[in-house]
Amino acid sequence: MPDEPTELAVGESFVTSEEGDDLRVETTRSEEHLFTTTYRDAETGTLRLALQVDITTGSAAIDPRSYDADFWTLVVEGLPRPDLDLQSALASVEEPGIEVDTDRRELHVQSDDA
């Protein structure tokens, strides 16, 4: 995941996806140390995922209401886990780190210290 640009003012956004991508990826500085990145279907605008990153701790959190299980494949510690829901995947890893692979439509959950 690219480094979050700390020069954005609270409330400002920028789009990191390219024209023609399947997903429109937009990052907003929602609070002083919080950035929210949304992943939306580029054609329909349907929200597929919202990820919040705290730049002081590096921790990431997903709004579970935003997670589109039909769109993403969960990959836990390197293994595809279609049998798990998001809550179970996050609970199965101690101090989970989250990485989004938009090209493969994968949500990677792995130990943050790995």
Results as ranks from 00 to 15, higher is better:
35 F>A: 02
62 I>N: 01
22 D>F: 07
62 I>V: 06
99 E>T: 10
51 L>R: 11
40 R>G: 04
97 G>H: 13
101 D>V: 11
58 G>Q: 15
52 Q>Y: 06
36 T>N: 12
90 L>N: 12
48 R>M: 13
24 R>E: 13
72 W>M: 09
50 A>G: 09
62 I>H: 07
69 A>M: 03
45 G>E: 08
31 E>Q: 02
64 P>F: 15
17 S>L: 11
34 L>T: 02
25 V>P: 02
47 L>D: 09
66 S>Q: 05
43 E>T: 14
78 G>Y: 06
55 I>E: 10
42 A>E: 15
99 E>L: 10
68 D>K: 05
45 G>F: 07
60 A>C: 13
23 L>C: 04
26 E>F: 04
102 T>F: 11
35 F>N: 01
14 F>K: 13
37 T>C: 00
80 P>F: 06
87 Q>Y: 13
93 V>F: 11
52 Q>C: 05
99 E>V: 10
43 E>F: 07
24 R>W: 08
65 R>Y: 05
36 T>R: 12
40 R>W: 03
72 W>S: 03
73 T>L: 02
63 D>W: 01
91 A>L: 15
36 T>Q: 08
31 E>T: 02
83 D>S: 11
83 D>A: 01
32 E>D: 15
48 R>K: 14
27 T>W: 02
98 I>E: 02
64 P>R: 14
102 T>I: 12
104 R>A: 04
70 D>Q: 04
101 D>C: 09
76 V>T: 13
49 L>N: 01
57 T>R: 03
95 E>M: 13
34 L>A: 06
23 L>K: 05
61 A>H: 04
100 V>Y: 01
61 A>E: 10
20 G>M: 04
95 E>H: 08
16 T>N: 05
64 P>Q: 13
104 R>P: 01
60 A>R: 15
37 T>A: 00
99 E>Y: 03
49 L>G: 05
75 V>Q: 11
24 R>P: 02
70 D>E: 09
39 Y>H: 12
50 A>R: 05
21 D>I: 05
97 G>S: 06
39 Y>T: 14
82 P>N: 00
14 F>D: 01
101 D>K: 14
16 T>E: 06
78 G>R: 01
85 D>V: 07
53 V>F: 09
92 S>D: 15
102 T>L: 03
87 Q>F: 13
91 A>T: 15
61 A>S: 07
80 P>V: 05
30 S>V: 04
53 V>G: 02
50 A>S: 13
33 H>C: 05
71 F>R: 08
29 R>K: 09
59 S>R: 09
86 L>Q: 04
51 L>N: 11
37 T>M: 00
31 E>S: 04
58 G>S: 09
92 S>A: 15
87 Q>H: 14
45 G>A: 05
88 S>W: 05
52 Q>G: 03
17 S>W: 13
63 D>A: 00
53 V>P: 07
72 W>P: 02
50 A>N: 07
41 D>S: 07
94 E>F: 13
86 L>S: 00
42 A>S: 13
61 A>W: 09
60 A>T: 12
95 E>C: 10
80 P>T: 06
88 S>Q: 14
101 D>N: 15
53 V>D: 08
90 L>T: 15
44 T>F: 14
96 P>K: 11
64 P>H: 12
89 A>M: 14
15 V>L: 11
69 A>P: 08
82 P>A: 01
19 E>N: 07
47 L>M: 12
68 D>A: 11
72 W>L: 07
